[in-house]
Design a protein around this nucleic acid. Sequence first.
DNA 1: CTGTTAGCGCTTTCAT
DNA 2: ATGAAAGCGCTAACAG
Lengths: 349, 349
Amino acid sequence: MPHNRKRKSAVKITLQDVAREIGVSAITVSRALREPDKVSDDLRNHILGVVNRMGYVPDPHARALASGTSTFIGVLLPSLSHPAISAVLNGIEARIRGTDYRIQYSNSHYDPEEEVRQLRAFAAHNPAGVILAGTERLENLETMANEAGCPVVQTIDCSLKMNGLAVGINHRLAAAAATRHLLAQGYRRIAMLGCGHDIRVRLRQSGYCEVMQQAGLFDEGLIVWQDAPPSIHLGSRLIRRLIEQRPDVDGVLCHSDDLALGVIFESQRLGIRVPDDFGICGFNDLDYATSTEPSLTTVRVPRFDIGYKAADMVITLGQGGIVQQRTTDVGFELMERGTTRRMKKAASA
Amino acid sequence: MPHNRKRKSAVKITLQDVAREIGVSAITVSRALREPDKVSDDLRNHILGVVNRMGYVPDPHARALASGTSTFIGVLLPSLSHPAISAVLNGIEARIRGTDYRIQYSNSHYDPEEEVRQLRAFAAHNPAGVILAGTERLENLETMANEAGCPVVQTIDCSLKMNGLAVGINHRLAAAAATRHLLAQGYRRIAMLGCGHDIRVRLRQSGYCEVMQQAGLFDEGLIVWQDAPPSIHLGSRLIRRLIEQRPDVDGVLCHSDDLALGVIFESQRLGIRVPDDFGICGFNDLDYATSTEPSLTTVRVPRFDIGYKAADMVITLGQGGIVQQRTTDVGFELMERGTTRRMKKAASA
DNA sequence: CTGTTAGCGCTTTCAT
DNA sequence: ATGAAAGCGCTAACAG
């Protein structure tokens, strides 16, 4: 006699119920669902029909407990407030749609301690895999990743020699390309605006420094960094400060489009002509980059693809597949737009 | 003799292991962890120490299976690409920090079918609760919510008479307040820009219509709507189209700040003076609203609080607590800024 | 306050 | 190709 257990309102239909209804054993139904080949065609079709009719849904917890694996994918982000980061989640989500995988989401708020704690929490859930979209302390994570007992994919930078799986771009090269573009457009006193602790900032800065040094134009004073999340407001503040200290600055590479947009607004307020007297390059190619006035030159990073491919790795490995490339470079693209489209370039230095 | 099962690399420590180590029964350790009062102080402290030392982490799946409840909170969002929505997630996440609850995240992409499917998937996981941040078809959801066997909190609108839990604002009143503000600033031919299927659009539109009708200024042609996600670009496009059709339009209430920002940029391009000749009001009070040029008048919606309180309801109910207010109005605030700060107001109609 | 027993729903292993 | 038995790790229910 079925009786409501716990606080479940709807009566729960179990594998047993379905099996009894059909007159087979539970394991056969289970197999029909998971290993179709191992059940004869007729029986399988019959079973699938009854499963549907009865509205049976497997209990993921029982499954996880019995099999030692689950269909959870842990996703650890450093923030959600940033569109560039949520785009990765969108990609993950796109890959997962239509499968039984589910996203278990967690936010480290750029806190290394929290990152490790969350990764540990994930591990306790026997996840199918974990995707990391940002991290402060790679060393610890590598150790933990090895102990996690499941694939761990980092999506920070594809050049990072982590002993694991990675999908991303090479941020150093991307920043270098952006800096070269600014130089090619005739800007000389090019600043770099950065923020946050993310490894990416460091990598991009090194790309910028490299190119500026090669050009003989490096000036440490042109590097502005603040420990804060990226925001439009921060961009305005940082550029104002910089212009006070280095009035001759004539271009800027920003760590993110948000900062760049802040710079655009501040330029409007200060009456600085963009791109004629001042060049601006962002990073990420967010939605609004084509809509700003002038439109924003920036580095397109295929965030969505990154998420998609990271999830794909997890799923492939989970199904016993083999991932040929443990490290995938999805590439970046420099989007040359209005904020650096200067007609009369300065005479070459 | 412990042997590695499945693909777990680290040997899993179980309740049994801890119990054996101490010389008590498993249930006592379990109780020390969950119901501290039921275990003597000395024993409990000892147990907790050993638990820590051995690095024992309870298996959530086993827990869920045995108890019929879990510490998962299902969060169903219609999108992630929108900052206003991710802010709700941030709030949820803030409430959850430090607890054992985990977020199981899902995205409906504004698709009603998908919403129902996802809600069903959640239900199979015995979640502690489900939080809905947007929905297209309330009717279905209500039924499902009742069958979910766990608290379901909607965060769409606090005035909605759903037979359940709700946290939010009254969107009709908010839009009405914004429209009244535009009128008070002397704008007369005020348009409404909307997009998407979200119930909120309809509610806000009705607030706008109400006020415009009362003022005797209603004109259906001033309502522009498009079935698309909100974006800056869309704002630009819609306002351009509207100005072609109704050149005398002198103000606009936008369904979101994104649209409003697009209007700002388009005004710059068209040489329209804001706020002198044209007033703009957004919705949500996103980060950048204070940074735009001019700064953006908008309706602040405490998204973070909404998420926080929704999660709080779930947790309270999950712990056997009682939620006195099944419906919570967190209130809105009209942020009067530059885009409607007109010095010389038109003579009153 | 502590222990015993049973079982959550499913999958594994080993038979047939 | 199908089934029986056992058990995943934990908690509920009932003792004592």
